[in-house]
């Protein structure tokens, strides 16, 4: 067992191995590991953010649904009152129309009645005159008694 040139050969080999490891092995492996660590960290952060976004979205969706429900209730209420209004209006209009028709029919009837009465009166006067003429044709001067007869007809 003696120390000799082997020692220096070993030092040289050792130096070369360390140099090779330092230049070509260590940086590549550490680089890949660090890159992966970064990727994983990013992924975790993204997942957390996604979770938070989801929660936020849920809250917002609830709010929107609540609003929509309120709006629907509003619209329904308005529609109901509008319908009532329409029905009321229609009813009052119909009643007014009915009354108008009734009135006009009544007045027409009255006019007809008056006219019929007038006609009847006239005809009664004519008849009376004709009858009286026939009865009195001989003894009464038509011209002399005309006023009297007209007055009678008007009193009928």
């Amino acid at each position: 067992m003696s120390i000799n040139v082997t020692l220096f050969a070993q030092m040289l080999v050792f130096g070369l191995l360390v140099w090779f490891t330092m230049s070509f092995v260590w940086p590549l492996i550490r680089g890949a590991m660090e890159e992966r660590e970064q990727t994983i960290a990013d992924g975790l952060a993204a997942a957390e953010k996604g979770q938070k976004d989801l929660e936020q979205a849920g809250v917002e969706a609830g709010k929107i649904v609540e609003e929509a429900r309120d709006q629907a209730r509003d619209i329904l209420g308005k529609a109901n009152s509008r319908a009532n209004e329409i029905v009321d209006t229609a009813r009052s209009e119909g009643e007014a129309e009915k009354r108008k028709r009734l009135d006009s029919a009544q007045s027409e009837l009255e006019v007809e009645i008056n006219r019929a009465r007038d006609e009847l009166r006239q005809q009664v006067a004519v008849l009376a005159v004709a009858g009286a003429e026939k009865v009195l044709s001989r003894e009464i001067d038509e011209a002399a008694h005309r006023d009297l007869l007209d007055q009678l007809a008007a009193d009928l």
Binding site: N4, Q10, F20, F24, V25, L28, I29, A32, E35
Partner: peptide
């Protein structure tokens, strides 16, 4: 008076070490 066996095995094992590690390093992916 070089010890050929010591140097031979030490070099061979050193090459096995750096060779296998370099193989992993060259294809190392994230």
């Amino acid at each position: 008076n070089l010890h050929w066996d010591s140097i031979f095995y030490s070099v061979i094992l050193g090459i096995i070490f750096v060779g296998s590690f370099f193989a992993a390093a060259r294809k190392a992916t994230a």
